[in-house]
Amino acid sequence: MRILVSTALMLAAVSLAGMSVVGPTTHSLEWWSEVREGDPSTGTGGALYRLAALVLPLAVPLGGQELPPSPDLDPRALLLESRGEGGGPGSHWEFYFTRAIYSEYQGGWGWGRRARWATDYPKADHQFLVVLKRLIAIDAYGGENAVRLDDPEIRRFPFLYALEVSRMNLTDAEVQGLRDYLEAGGFLVIDDFWGERALQNLAYQLNRVLPGRLIRPVAMDHPIFSTVYALEEIQQVPNVGNGRRGGPTTECWGCEPMVFGISDDRDRLMVVINWNTDLGDAWEWAEDPWYPLQYSTFAYKMGVNMVAYAMSH
């Protein structure tokens, strides 16, 4: 029912803009490419944004700025320190859970100075890795590993995790860095962003990265849902607050979880987009007795599957 409501709202919004659309229940989702072709502030994409702003009363932050160096967080120093400087003894691990540091729109609604890429960081990363190493026989580094998208070093880590992308605003260097990363064989997982506007912003950013590639729903018979664990449905994983309270799992009205993907020319997933769900919180708070086990179980299964898929396809 909620999917139907969500879809109806989107169809209504887009039809107000006079666009021809195909709903997300189909597997083509050409409408996303339409969205991605427009700048949020201009063109048809802009019209959609404006309409979305009416439907979803969120201010659209315009005029992106590059992420300034954070004086209290130097990810490069953190990275080198945690992985071992210069590739010396003890520095090699097969798998690094790598978190993407990206630029975002400044001002407007947000969490103040706290960069959104660092949401749940690093506890969620640590917790996920602890469980990952128990579930599969992987040689994984147990610490956090955050790398900027425009850092060439990112190409050493073919698995990348990004979240809270509703305000993502990539610089040209980041666009180029992420494009090269994905085209070379890297794998990007996106998590914990909610609502149509956030998805539209992501679509716009990804269209800059991978122009011409469509965002499509990932069908349940896709191998990513069965690589290690057979998942029969996509659960909406709530944030820690909602989960503890036993309240609604969604963070926006009518939002249903979906998994989208962008595939390469051989139909292998390059990007997996976990929309309207918060796997990261479930990893971060899995040990909390008040957080429902079913959500963290699903989140870990999905996480393991994504890692296993990324390392095999």
Binding site: E94, F95, I136, A137, I138, D139, P158, G185, R266, V307, A308, A310, M311, S312, H313
Partner: peptide
């Protein structure tokens, strides 16, 4: 014997070769 990047990229490297079938 374990998940490794080498396997992923090896598969990718030979996937266009119609005369090779790497069963993993």
């Amino acid at each position: 014997g374990e998940p490794r990047w080498e396997m992923k990229f090896l598969r990718r490297a030979v996937e266009d070769d119609e005369n090779l079938q790497v069963v993993v």
